[in-house]
């Protein structure tokens, strides 16, 4: 197990393993997203209160879940980089931030579009919405801090500290709807409790959540692979791999 950790941590073996995984995660992502979207948007029943506008949850809920998970994964990489100084962990942080920022942005935009017809407003400064906006700024901050620093080693250290500080925001987002009075309703979908909706609604939602995760891992691996090629461009294995294309 420990050997495996070190092996995967070497850029070259990660490149080889991910190269074999990539087609699979890509196909799985497309299948899940197409199935979930068609099922959720066309065949799942409308909501008794909101009618068809509740269907945006098949886009919004997975985006919000993934926005938080992707930050947690980035924070895991930050711990690995801080303690073991593993190059791959630094690359993983750098590559996760733009994807996380886009997904968080998607969650905010779809939330606003959903909020207008149901709540009656695009935006309200309640704890859930505000803490999610803070998370978007954290992702952007991670991207900005890295590009602001010349030295890659010290940029990596500074970024991992920022990522770890920002982890405090995750429980705030998750429990904001329970800790304070908010306009946002509490969560209807979690790993531990029975979903607050029938099978015909939670099944397509679950498929979408898994599809978003598969999409994230696919794009994350693709970005990590190209960053590995850039950073290791002077090594022989990269030059041989490029020559062999």
């Amino acid at each position: 197990m420990w050997n495996w950790f070190h092996k995967l941590g070497a850029p070259r073996s990660f490149f080889e393993i991910s190269g074999r995984l990539l087609p699979w995660t890509g196909v799985i992502a497309v299948l899940l997203l197409v199935t979930g979207a068609v099922w959720g948007l066309a065949f799942a029943p409308p909501d008794y209160q909101q009618g068809n506008s509740a269907r945006i949850m098949y886009v919004h809920v997975p985006a919000s879940i993934l926005a938080q998970s992707s930050y947690l994964m980035m924070a895991g990489a930050a711990v690995v980089f801080m303690v073991w100084r593993m190059k791959l962990a630094d690359i993983a942080i750098q590559c996760a931030a733009p994807i996380g920022a886009s997904i968080t942005f998607l969650a905010l935009v779809t939330g606003a579009i959903w909020g207008k017809p149901t709540w009656g407003t695009w935006w309200v400064w309640d704890a859930r919405l505000t803490s999610t906006l803070v998370q978007l700024f954290l992702f952007i901050g991670v991207i900005a801090l890295r590009s602001a620093m010349e030295n890659r080693e010290s940029a990596g250290r500074a970024v991992s500290v920022l990522v770890l500080v920002g982890v405090v925001n995750i429980p705030v987002i998750k429990y904001s709807v329970d800790w304070w009075f908010t306009l946002h309703q509490s969560s209807s979908f979690s790993m531990t409790e029975k979903p607050a909706m029938p099978f015909s609604m939670w099944m397509p939602l679950l498929i979408m959540v898994l599809g978003y995760y598969a999409f994230f891992f696919t794009v994350w691996m693709m970005r990590i692979r190209s960053e590995i090629l850039v950073r290791e461009s002077r090594t022989r294995w990269v030059q041989e791999w490029v020559a062999g294309r």
Binding site: P45, P46, D47, Y48, Q49, Q50, A54, M57, T118, W119, G120, T121, V124, L183, Q185, S186, S187, S188, A196, M197, P198, S200, M201
Partner: peptide
Amino acid sequence: EEVLAKHDENYMPPEVAK
């Protein structure tokens, strides 16, 4: 000046609600 509607976390099809 402004009234916003809250909704809860429960979703169900209209037939089930009926």
